[in-house]
């Protein structure tokens, strides 16, 4: 089963666990499953449209992915804040 890996503050919102084995065929489905299991994290990664927030990056097995990236097996999905260099301070 694919795993979603979180760091603070998302880890705290998801039951203080950094790794979550979840069912889903895409990154987006995994993140929806994560929100359903941990409602406190709802709205922090996906917005009301169900879209990945603009400055959140997802990496699938170390490579930059997207919401529709296919996942399965033992895939690992890291959810990280983007390096938003150049943003207004």
């Amino acid at each position: 089963m694919p795993r979603v890996c979180l760091r603070e503050p998302l880890k705290r919102l998801a039951g203080n666990r950094s790794e979550h084995a979840l069912e889903g065929g895409t990154v987006g489905e995994l993140l929806q499953a994560l929100e359903q299991r941990h409602p406190a994290a709802s709205g922090w990664i996906l917005d009301e449209r169900g879209a990945l927030r603009r400055h959140i990056n997802v990496f699938v097995n170390g490579e930059l992915g997207a919401q529709d990236t296919r996942v399965g097996g033992e895939d690992r999905v890291d959810v990280l804040p983007a390096i938003s260099g150049g943003a207004r301070p």
Binding site: A40, G43, D47, E48, R49, G50, A51
Partner: peptide, 16 residues
């Protein structure tokens, strides 16, 4: 504590 309900309706075209 985070307040509940600070979001637009789910599934629409807009996000807060």
């Amino acid at each position: 504590e985070q307040a509940d309900g600070i979001a637009l309706p789910e599934g629409g075209d807009a996000a807060l």
